[in-house]
Design a protein around this nucleic acid. Structure first.
Lengths: 218, 218, 218, 218
DNA sequence: TGGTAAACGAGACGGTACGTCGCGTCTTTTC
DNA sequence: GAAAAGACGCGACGTACCGTCTCGTTTACCA
């Protein structure tokens, strides 16, 4: 990610020892910045506006001008802190201003049924078009600058994996079956995301077959 | 895909007349179009130019103006025959003017070994960055105009599925095992494309595990 | 003046042997241009808009964006034909889309009285501020690119010189006096323009003195 | 308007106190300002920078940011003491940090000869372009903010008038002739400034004629 | 001699205009 | 009637200055 060191410093400062940051020893050598400090309000407004404009139907407005306008901020302020649209999107998503509208599966005790219900839900979501558009938009927007795979993965893949994962792990314990949970999660996520990304319609049969194939009944 | 019917009809016609020739006497059985016929040379030049501009590093030039300029053709000529950039790209890829730098697996008789070799090859390709960039670019370019996904699938998914598919089917017959070939192909393709699209690194272990999990040894 | 040769050719073509053009022998070698010809309507709209925006009070809008907007034309169209704002202004003025709001003297037979009345009129005009603002604006706008003295002279100086000149020449003949008419015109024009440009107030005494000094009574 | 800022500051202070303020106990007209006094060094640096940036060729840099940068000063410091760019320019010129490259006439005893020599010198200066450009620039810069003209007159007209004036007054006394010196100065200045402003070329004949016409030989 | 208030540098802020690029459409002449 | 040439309205791009606004840091005065 091509963030300037200044930006990096600024952001991580209030957040403190965030995320997977191991090397945070740089406390000495005061990072005392001179001049007026950047407006935290502007920063948030920009990231929020970006998140909002990623919503289905708004996507056409996802321009630097659109973001600035909706945030009530000057274009220059956006450019001052993020060198490109991709960077703004990445940070907006990273800060949680936008989440994929994909729910996770319930837990009624019957794993197969839960997954089936869930995938029907996903199908409905995909058919609405919003999720696909958003996913494609993300890939498209980010593709222009860098590959930035980790980011997209963090936004697109991880949440889905997490949701299906927690359900599977619960089942794995209660069932006592020897499921390769990790692999199943991975495959499940891949299949679903392909369908979301490419707007593929999941037929009833395909759903049943897929579940059966991935999680053989005992 | 949104190809005009005229385009479809027209295209197959001169292709029969083949290669470099212009004034062949295909007159008979003709649907007799009046006026100057469309230039086959222009068509090829456009598709070739599109393919060339999709090459990694050139992607920024993939504009309608860039295509027309490189093809030595007027913009109108491009628009006359393809309603959108997405359609040009799709046809360019379809006609082989651009190929995803993703080879298929060899057939040495040992399915597991072949797949392992192949996936190491893919990993190398992914690490080069070109494939990921191109795949992302395709998604991005196509998403802007045609979010329906069939298009992207045709360009991105199908070729990979075909390559791994033919190897698997061959194995399926020689092995006589009851493999759900279709499902395996689908899953294989999904996993690989996810990795390509998001630049995920495939470790040796991951490759071995995945193959073993998908195609259990007899 | 930095007009492109193409623009020059285009403009002078319909105008025929305009202005002081002596070398117009280039008729042969048909300048047949290809592609869509430039829109005469746009050209006129731009020049008219420019003239209108030079009017007192509107001057703040005299931006390339303002001109394009008022002309109902895209910015690019303005830039396509004139490389800078100064060039647009020069041509707008040159084509008569704007004239200095300075009247000429009447002819009642009494030269001194006529001039006095006229200068009082001018004083009123100057006090309104419009004329000064416009003159300064012209100088300022044109100064940024080139010196372009001839143009400003043509717009600012010549009309005034002409008006006072014709009155003086008429008087010169009827009086039979040996007036150095040319010199007087020159001086008169200079004095008046200095006052216009710098918003100098002309007092009654100054007017009388000046007229008496320039045109001694017989 | 073109009062020095210090005067301005001192003036507005009591005015502010008079504006219906309740706490105004400092009635005893104390001009004593508290806090850090303004930096004389900054003031000079700003005026010098302004003068330097008015030099021919540099004119495009004559922005508030440019001035501040070259003076090694913050923008706010400039704005604190001068309300507009015009004021800075006026004071810079007034303090002699920039002089129009227009010399005055020598005094060899022969008035006509002195003037002729001087005007040839001016012609050379005008042809170089620098003087015209600078004069136009001044008009342009000042016109944008202060169209009242006194400012421009003070900068542009007065210096020239003074130079030619002192030579003429000297001559007037030694000659004893009844010259209307004031008028002659005015006319001379007008003619010359018109030529400078509009880059008009003064021919040998024109110079001789003009001098002869303005100052008839005894 | 230490407080304090104004001036200082730095530089971010909301704006407006700049000049350019690409879009998809249009209007010419040429083939 | 297709093709090249290229102008058109549109809208976003990224940059430059504008004049204003915090910040933390001097620095001269007055107590």
């Amino acid at each position: 990610m091509n963030m300037t060191t200044r930006e990096e410093a600024e952001r991580t400062e209030p957040v403190a020892g965030a995320a997977g940051d191991a090397v945070s020893q740089r406390a000495e050598a005061a990072p005392k910045r001179r001049g007026r400090p950047r407006s935290q309000a502007s920063r948030e407004a920009i990231l929020r506006a970006t998140g909002e404009l990623m919503a289905p139907g708004q996507y056409a407005q996802l321009t630097m001008e659109g973001i600035a306008a909706r945030a009530g901020v000057s274009k220059q302020t956006v450019y001052r802190w993020w060198p490109s649209k991709a960077d703004v999107i990445v940070e907006s998503v990273g800060e949680g201003y936008l989440t994929l509208p994909l729910p996770g599966p319930e837990d009624t005790g019957d794993l197969h049924a839960d997954l089936r219900v869930w995938m029907h839900l996903l199908r409905h979501e995909i058919e609405g078009g919003g999720a696909s558009q958003l996913a494609q938009g993300l890939v498209g927007a980010l593709a222009q600058q860098d590959s930035r795979g980790e980011t997209i993965r963090a936004v697109l893949v991880d949440p889905v994996a997490e949701q299906v994962g927690s359900r599977l792990e619960a089942a794995s314990q209660s069932l006592g079956t020897a499921l390769d949970v990790e692999k199943i999660i991975e495959v499940f996520t891949s299949l679903i995301l392909m369908n979301v990304l490419f707007g593929q319609r999941m037929s009833d049969e395909w759903i049943d077959e897929t579940i059966a194939w991935l999680i053989p009944r005992a």
